[in-house]
Design a protein around this nucleic acid. Sequence first.
DNA 1: TGCTTTAGGTTTTTT
DNA 2: ACCTAAAGCA
Length: 734
Amino acid sequence: MESLNTKQYEAATYGEGPLLILAGAGSGKTRVLVFRVAYLIREKNVKPWNILAVTFTNKAAGEMKERVVGLLGNEGKNVDMGTFHHICARILRRHIDRLGYKTNFVIYDDRDQLSAIKTILEREGIDDKSVPPKKIQAIINTAKNQSISPVQSARNSMGFFKEKMILVIEEYEKLLRQGNALDFGDLIYLTVELFKENEDLLEEYRKRWSFILVDEYQDTNPVQYQLIKMLAGGLMNITVVGDDDQSIYRWRGADISNILDFERDFPGAHIVRLEQNYRSTQRILSAAGSVVEKNVGRKGKDLWTEVGEGELLTLCQTSNEYEEARYVLDEIGSIHGSDDRRYSDFAIFYRTNAQSRVVEEELLKRAIPYTVVGGMKFYDRMEIKDILCYLRVIINPDDTVALKRVINTPPRGIGKKSIADMEEKAIDMGASLYRAIELEKGNKKIIAFRSMIESLCAKKETLDTADLLREVLIQSGYVKKLKDENTVEARSRLENIEELEEAIREMIGEGEESSIESFLERTSLMSDVDNYSEKEERVTLMTLHSAKGLEFPAVFMMGMEENLFPHSRSKDDIEALEEERRLCYVGMTRAREHLYLTYTKKRRVFGSEQYNIPSRFLSDIPEELMQRVNIEPAFASAYSGSYGQSGGAHSESYGRKEKVVQAGFVGGGFDDDKGLALDEVGGYARGSKVRHPTFGEGVVRGGEGSGEKAKIAVYFPRLGLKKLLLKYAPLERV
DNA sequence: TGCTTTAGGTTTTTT
DNA sequence: ACCTAAAGCA
């Protein structure tokens, strides 16, 4: 490991008691944390399992563990690391019976949560316009983030439908309890409750974790703060690392005052400031600083660097979002070509996920490999959720949310009426929906469904998770239905299901705890950034929020416009505006060398055209740090170089939509052979046979493009025609 | 009951 | 512009 500077060393080797490390962007805080863990173990004889390190994402925890192991060897593996949610889930798996739950609880994500709320509304005959489900959801989550009982919080609220809202929330909590389910908020909220009610357990964990480290402390919310305070309460060996300028999760309940008031909350706290930046050029730092400087509620710091001045930032105005995308990709193309850069050196950030679409289309046209972090998560896809819900029902039939999802998926003739009847019976019995189904005698279709579930439940005892999944796919008729459909869509869903099975086999192969429960837990607590790998040679697209903690040689921030960034929903609220400003700071400080800020005069929002003025953040950047570029539609083709055959500003004429489905290939149903003009590409002749690790054997149908952008079209018997980027396609001659 | 059509809402960010 | 959820039809 690289050596530490004076401040870093001071932080890493500080002794006992509360420690606040104010770590500016790019100041090497992970290095310090890792070194500190190693120091405690090596020099202070702290046992690895007596250290708890809380991180913001699983990926951060994984990286930290890897680096600790790098320093200490296998001993480092025993340090407890994870996100708040993971650590709490682990505690609750051991002790939640004390709160009247069973330890094999399931975790409801926010979509499950929303279905649960909708179920209640329907059941109670409450109209979802007077009591909007999303609003209920917000009340529940906000309350739990504040460590307040949601029912209590609703009681304290004001409003027209207060009584109804209280009822819905009460019933929601009952439904979850009955189904032995916890929502995200519960994981932390109930852990705090557990410790409040069980002094002995708290004592046990205080002893176990004699040193606690918390990363990204500026983004902790009140309930997390309370938990930390409880756990650190004995020895007060608490180290927190954070940067008040990078607090961007206020809307999720994060409270910036946790970091601002650390010294007050933990008297005698030692403070170390890390202000040397090892990442960006001075110009980038100055520009970012000038944006965040405008905030009032901050500790203030001076970042400096030895990297050097660097080049000017580029500020580009275009006429619309298509031009914007083209400009960005032109620049990527030219830096990639001349600077010996890998595609993975480039990142494109935007404020809202919806902005990715236009850029993706352009990337596909140019056959530049890319990944989108965020947006639709793998485990959120319809088919994956369906299958996971089957597993949930098998391990716990009282999980009514899961049961309702699978009861008629695929269609098996169980309609609204039958379900409503069953639900009514269940309420009369005071039991879950499944208990009513268990007793059903008349309805043949329901009985058939029940025996299917029973048969699957029986198999659970003898089969491992992957084989059970297979059994689900067969018995439910899910795969058969997709195969019969035989559309591109259905085939892609089948592929995803295969990928799910693969993920389970992988888990089993790793020799870790591989029960269905732990698999389900993993899937629900997985974040998007967790799956992101910088090793792949791809341009990265993500929201500014996802970008936290990462760095790239070249960064493009798109849509720097009023109403988009700062977002229109933030502009009337000073606190929210300050947060947008911090978000801008976070984005800019991800860049090592090249930083581009782009905006357009006109943009399509919800189908209609919107004219925005440049973001106020841009005017905070001193002019001498930037060079301005103005792209007029007439010159667009000059900029888009060899791709600009369209000549005009509108790219709709490009027609065919393509979708990246997986690493290394671009493709999905093509209904024609247009663009497959080549008879030979990269040494593969039309008609020759090739093998792909995922898709199996196929026949070359043709190719297009050349050099970097060469694509090969291969027909795979089961899957249809796929266009693969030759450069990345792991093909083998057969 | 189930498929197709239409209407409505949606987009701020996510463990 | 896009996706989901309710309404409408077979």
